[in-house]
Design a protein around this nucleic acid. Structure first.
Lengths: 123, 123
DNA sequence: GTATGAACACACTGTTCATAA
DNA sequence: TTATGAACAGTGTGTTCATAC
């Protein structure tokens, strides 16, 4: 989370924050695991050229877990083989909402910044 | 410049590119120098929390000059003291336009990406 | 104090490597 | 192959230092 990211030079949103709100949103709608979440991400954002590496997804999930927002549980998936999945669910709904709210403010700011750049430089 | 920035994971625009198009736009409207350009930048973008350090401005100006887009000329400013300024003007109008066009495509993409994030996560 | 620039340090992200089933 | 994770490496950016006037 790192509240000291305020008081930076404040350019655009960090990828990590972008990923975290996406992950929270998806997990709010049901249990899920790393690579599955990445697949969902790609269906939504690959059209915009965004295709983060799997390590970024895992790193984000780990940080959200350490922050007490998500809970991780390992499960054995029945199937042709026994595969161990790391299933994530929401641990603290309040913290999740608070974090999403924080990032929304930054997304709004970025939207303004980019719109301003477009109108200023391409009038 | 660096055309190989295509085929990255393509998150948001780099600050350097943002600064470069701003600098080109301002310099197209008249000769100017580093810290003056930074002041103009702040009047437009500080409201969005963007306040880049002066070294970033200089670095951007240097790169644009190396790329043959800008031309640098040192001048002595008359005043209470003789102060040496680095005045920039457009060196190659075509290259400047081409670069701005390139970055506009990325700005448009970012606009879409952010709008998508807002609608997806905050429906 | 203003102006320019370089050098250094760090944070973020991307690639590679390791392990398991 | 899918899945998870760690370790490493590189790039961009922020801070500090140096110089001049």
């Amino acid at each position: 989370m790192n509240e000291r990211q305020r008081e930076s030079t404040g350019f655009l949103l960090k990828q990590r924050a972008f990923l975290k709100v996406f992950l929270i949103t998806e997990i709010e709608q049901g249990r899920s695991y790393g690579l599955q979440l990445r697949d969902i991400l790609l269906t939504h954002f690959q059209a915009y050229g965004f295709k983060p590496h799997h390590s970024e997804i895992y790193h984000s999930l780990h940080e959200l877990t350490e922050a007490g927002i998500l809970r991780k549980r390992e499960e054995l998936e029945e199937g042709a083989k026994y595969k161990k999945l790391s299933i994530y669910t929401i641990e603290d709904e309040e913290k999740a909402k608070a974090y999403k709210k924080l990032v929304k403010a930054d997304l709004d700011r970025c939207q303004g910044l980019i719109n301003k750049a477009l109108s200023h430089n391409y009038a």
